[in-house]
Write a protein that binds this DNA or RNA. Structure first.
Lengths: 334, 334
DNA sequence: TTGTACGCGTTATCAA
DNA sequence: TTGATAACGCGTACAA
């Protein structure tokens, strides 16, 4: 397990080059004055010995790791991958390295991840995890590690956030539907333990319906394409119609495919839409009506905000992203 | 930028608890003998001060980081996310942290990433990057960091690998098609700079066709759904048929959707299949014939192999994963 | 059982 | 321009 053993150290380079380690350090960091001659000598021995500075020791000495912690529930969702990609893009551009923490949608693991974020000495963190409260985030921020929280409104001295606004678009959609189309009763697909975003949408869904006095329903649903597909094959045997609001594209596609394979028409008999739309909404057929947030852009923005926050330069600590409704062929148009 | 400043150190805990830092260290690591009484005192002050050990200093002192480097071209492909998820699952279980390096399919960035892997002091690395040669991997392994290479056959003292075997299944598929179906000429969709896996498949495609003396074609294609869709809308105006082999599900879906939107029938007029199948192959309609490697399992296996390699316990350094052909509705059956 | 002192591989502040 | 030397925060023989 001694992976760092027989590692070439700065001291060995110094000895081999016949200089002191301070000089080698200067050469590495291009700081301070070094004769062209000795610099070349040092550089050549560095190359010869294959010396690579230890990021660990550097970090310990400088109080900077150039590491950014990224906390996400899982890497396996397309919209999260999109965000991750935005983060990596900017991180690479800025010479930052990413340390990944996944939490599996569990609050316990989320808290555990935050502990490790602190221990791991990252220079900052981007947290996209529904399970965390404002106070959890506060606790971590109190360790003086700058944090950008995605999909949650949290404020604090060393905290910025990127909240998504789904509520408005969803409310508008529901009201518009009942006013102009009203072909079906709306059903919200509840997924247990799937984060605050979905929970908030569900709340909005219910509240809006009660406000306008329309009937609605909520049914439980698995967060899996196959299981949802099978469940809805059964469902449609008894009730061959409806308007379903699903969490993700996969789930919406499961409903849509189940409908079609049951001999139903989409959108005439069955309407479906997804809340967290990705490019797959436009790939499946019929194409899915969905709400979209540009997660790639969110990732980039989060990274840029974090860098500014680390430099004490972030002025606007809240950056909204509005969900946009894209109407496609899985729902009826007016 | 002094993120680590005013961090509570082991020394402060020791002082506050009225013991030496060695005792605190013992309490943290549950090593050595400590009186129940002093342990409780130390633990309570740790909690009171909110002390978290510095992973950095620990790593420097112990020569172990409990960090695993993961090198991938991008986080944005479903099959890579799947693998990443397998890796995170096992890593979490084993208390390991992941450091992410993305290379954007560029050899230069891949080499750069490997440099950083070394500097970052990871205990081991999983490399899934087509751009790297065996000698590149060797160079890194010479730094005594254990590596598992995915999708490439590389050997070495501190190197294990998980090669995918696409060749056999692909060869068999091509031969079988020309023997039993032969409805269309086969066309391989070449994507520039998309890694060795695709290049290898293309080579196999060409070689097999020449062996059996059948006509074939290769055309250039973008690694983007939208562009491929548009290109094929044009293509089908001139040549409304064919059997197309695409890299990923998205690309295959683009061809299939373009065909259908052009009024063609899939699979009667246009057949499509994808080489790197994901769950989306079964979600899009018509469902896509595709080759599959269980990337979640690959990720898990890679992680398990790496752990064994780190412990000098890995006996079988090569672990094959066979690509499996799943026939669905986008191609003709015999 | 507890404390002292040294080492891990750097950076950075002084002298020289 | 260079070279000692003290941090950085922790683990750990060894001594007490």
């Amino acid at each position: 397990m001694n992976n760092l053993k027989d590692r070439v150290t700065i001291y060995q380079v110094a000895q081999a080059a016949g200089v002191s380690l301070a000089t080698v350090s200067r050469v590495i960091n291009k700081k301070g004055n070094v004769t062209e001659e000795t610099r070349e000598r040092v550089e050549s021995t560095i190359a010869r010995l294959g010396y690579k500075p230890s990021g660990l020791a550097q970090a310990l000495a400088t109080n900077k790791t150039t590491n950014i912690g990224v906390v996400i529930p899982s890497a396996n969702y397309v919209y999260i991958s999109n965000m991750l990609n935005g983060i990596t893009d900017v991180a690479k551009e800025k010479g930052l390295t990413l340390t990944l923490f996944t939490t599996s949608h569990s609050r316990e693991e989320a808290l555990n991840a935050m502990e490790r974020v602190i221990s791991s000495h990252v220079d900052g963190a981007i947290v996209f995890d529904d399970e965390l409260d404002a106070e959890d985030v506060d606790k971590i921020a109190s360790y003086n590690v700058p944090i950008i929280v995605v999909n949650n409104r949290v404020t604090g001295d060393r905290v910025g956030c990127i909240p998504f606004s789904y509520t408005e678009a969803l409310t508008e959609l529901i009201k518009g539907y009942h006013k102009n189309i009203a072909a079906h009763q709306m059903t919200f697909l509840h997924v247990h333990n799937c984060g605050r975003l979905l929970a908030k949408c569900e709340k909005t869904f219910i509240k809006t319906h009660e406000e306008i006095g329309k009937a609605y329903s909520v049914i439980n649903c698995d967060d899996s394409y196959t299981r949802t597909y099978n469940d809805f094959r059964e469902y449609f045997k008894k009730k061959p119609e409806g308007f379903f609001i699903a969490y993700r594209d996969s789930i919406a596609a499961a409903v849509e495919n189940a409908a079609i394979d049951s001999g139903l028409r989409v959108p005439e008999d069955v309407e479906v839409m997804s809340l967290v739309g990705t490019k797959y909404a436009a790939i499946v057929r019929p194409t899915l009506t969905s709400m979209h947030v540009d997660m790639l852009e969110v990732g980039k923005r989060a990274m840029y905000m974090l860098i500014e926050l680390m430099n004490y330069e972030l002025v606007d600590k809240v950056s909204h992203f509005d969900a946009e409704l894209v109407t496609r062929n899985s729902t009826l148009h007016k």
